[in-house]
Amino acid sequence: MSADPLSRVFAATADPTRRDLVARPTVADPTLTELAEPYDVSLQAVSQHLRVLEDAGLVTRGRDAQKRPVHLEAEVLSLMTAWIERYRRQAEECYSRLDDVLASMPDDVAPLPPARAVSPNPRRTKGKQA
């Protein structure tokens, strides 16, 4: 996969089952069987989900005798968090500026009437295809 790491992580977590696999573990480094337990799907299906998460760098699979523990790579989640936080701060700044503008407006200004819907001029659209 040639996409940048952040795009791979967001693509991998676009699926609700994969998001749940990342969010749900209650024990450190669960096995495939432990992760698959609450789902009504085959071990192979859960393994395929884990492969996508692994390709994105969100999990790694180890070897412990006969077990293959799945380890969550938390630092990859911090990459997502940093990206989201940057845009959250930008949105917060915009809303703060809007609050300042609204606070500076006089209270006695009458609101604008609602905009009227305008039907298209049939002569203007004649012969044009949408």
Rank of each mutant, 00 (worst) to 15 (best):
M1G: 06
A14H: 14
L6T: 10
V27D: 01
V59W: 08
V9S: 13
E85N: 07
D40R: 13
D4C: 02
A45V: 13
A103W: 11
L79Y: 01
R123A: 14
A56R: 10
G57H: 08
D55Q: 10
L6A: 06
E37K: 14
A23E: 07
T17M: 11
G57Y: 09
L77F: 09
Q48F: 04
P69Q: 04
P38Y: 06
V109L: 15
V22K: 01
K128Y: 05
P122M: 08
Q66F: 02
P113V: 03
M80W: 10
S96D: 13
E85V: 03
T26H: 06
A130K: 04
S47L: 03
Q44T: 11
R51T: 08
T13D: 00
L79C: 08
S2R: 04
E37T: 10
V118T: 15
A45N: 06
V59Q: 05
D15V: 11
V46Y: 01
T33E: 15
D20I: 00
A115V: 11
P25F: 11
C94K: 13
R86P: 00
D108I: 05
S2N: 04
Q90L: 15
R88F: 05
V109M: 11
S119Q: 09
D107C: 04
T13M: 15
R116V: 06
Y87F: 15
L43C: 04
A3N: 07
H71Y: 08
L43A: 12
D64W: 03
